[in-house]
């Protein structure tokens, strides 16, 4: 009997493909932008930034931003994959449980009431993270009250909180002055400009454990994506797996949104693209989404910097512009509709 390509080999393929895509994007990313940078010029004197502007642009402006895009994109795609499995909904995104609303509310409150606070680098991210985690915790607590953690209740509670908190967000915005409103709108569009190496280090250390833990959940997510009974019949505590996975994914989302704002579409688009290439086995999709999401956001960031040079577009606009049509393309493909 001949068997189809085994998951293990498909995973190796996806990891190779995703890895190559990410590395290519990371190499190209720092070189293009408002002014292009020549790599030879950078390496001619890489650390004397005062006399070598190419190196200064490369290391101070571009590289941290590109790395930030990779970290954020990887986390959002991995989180999206997790939500889609555990909520058993292909349209679930990292923002389904109300993370954006919570993060926006806290961020807007800070912008409105603490403009230019002492630790500007950390006040907005800190507030956004608190808001994101508080909302997810609230959604999960509400769902648990009904006994277990049923996906429908989680989804509906998330959607409801999104609307309710969204009203509070609008209220804060309504009572803000023009400068603050502009900052708020800008934040909503997603923004990778604040990248510093210190922030990157914090982000990496905060995200790595959740990546590792989620990447190990492939088999569990396969069974959970079939349903609660299926998972229970194979010895998985469905409620525990749901809570654990959603908390890890929400943590990743919260951290990513805290530093980059709510960058849309990565969490839906990338996992589906990976599924099209490598099949639906979560042992393949999870690593594929992490690498693919990282590469995808770096590419979006490159495009954001070059489409109307020298103006740089907010990255959220780019991901939505690319993501929307591509997602429709996926939806209308025969193979996708049949399943």
């Amino acid at each position: 009997m001949t068997f189809p390509v085994m998951a293990r080999r498909r995973r190796a393929r996806i990891v190779l493909l995703g890895g190559a895509f990410l590395v290519g994007a990371l190499l190209l990313g720092p070189l293009v932008g408002a002014t292009d940078v020549d790599l030879r010029e950078v390496w001619s004197d890489p650390f004397d930034w005062s006399s070598n502007p190419a190196a200064a642009i490369f290391f101070m402006a571009r590289l941290p931003r590109v790395l930030l895009a990779a970290l954020v994109g990887g986390s959002l795609a991995l989180a999206g994959t997790t939500y889609q499995s555990l909520l058993r909904n292909p349209l679930a995104s990292p923002y389904t449980l109300g993370v954006t609303a919570g993060a926006s509310l806290m961020t807007f409150l800070v912008i409105r009431f603490l403009p230019g606070g002492g630790l500007a680098e950390f006040t907005v991210p800190g507030a956004a993270l608190i808001g994101a985690l508080a909302t997810t915790t609230l959604v999960m607590a509400l769902a648990t009250r009904t006994g277990g953690t049923p996906p429908t209740v989680l989804l509906l509670a998330g959607v409801t909180l999104n609307f309710t908190i969204g009203a509070a967000v609008l209220l804060v915005q309504y009572f803000a002055d023009y400068t603050a409103t502009a900052r708020m709108v800008r934040w909503m569009m997603g923004d990778l400009e604040g990248a510093t190496y210190r922030l990157l280090a914090i982000l990496f250390v905060a995200s790595l454990p959740a990546w590792v833990l989620l990447l190990r959940c492939g088999r569990t997510f396969n069974l959970m994506s079939l349903g609660r009974e299926e998972a229970q019949a194979h010895g998985i505590d469905a409620d525990r797996a749901t809570r654990r996975g959603l908390l890890l994914a929400s943590w990743l989302t919260g951290v990513a949104v805290a530093v980059a704002g709510p960058v849309g579409f990565v969490g839906i688009l990338v996992p589906h693209a990976v599924r099209l290439i490598g099949g639906v086995d979560y042992r393949v999709v999870l690593p594929g989404a992490l690498l693919g999401g990282a590469g995808f956001l770096v590419v979006c960031d490159i495009l954001a910097r070059v489409v109307i040079r020298p103006v740089e577009l907010p990255i959220g606009i780019l991901t939505a512009c690319l993501g929307g049509p591509f997602f429709l393309f996926l939806l209308l493909r025969r193979g996708f509709a049949r399943d």
Partner: peptide, 26 residues
């Protein structure tokens, strides 16, 4: 179950998941 995307062999293999080593492959 509504098993969007899984092939038959993948479905049957799930019956063996818990017998595989923790991080191992079939």
């Amino acid at each position: 179950p509504r098993a969007a995307g899984f092939a038959v062999h993948e479905m049957v293999l799930m019956g063996l998941y818990s017998l595989l080593p923790a991080r191992g492959w079939e």
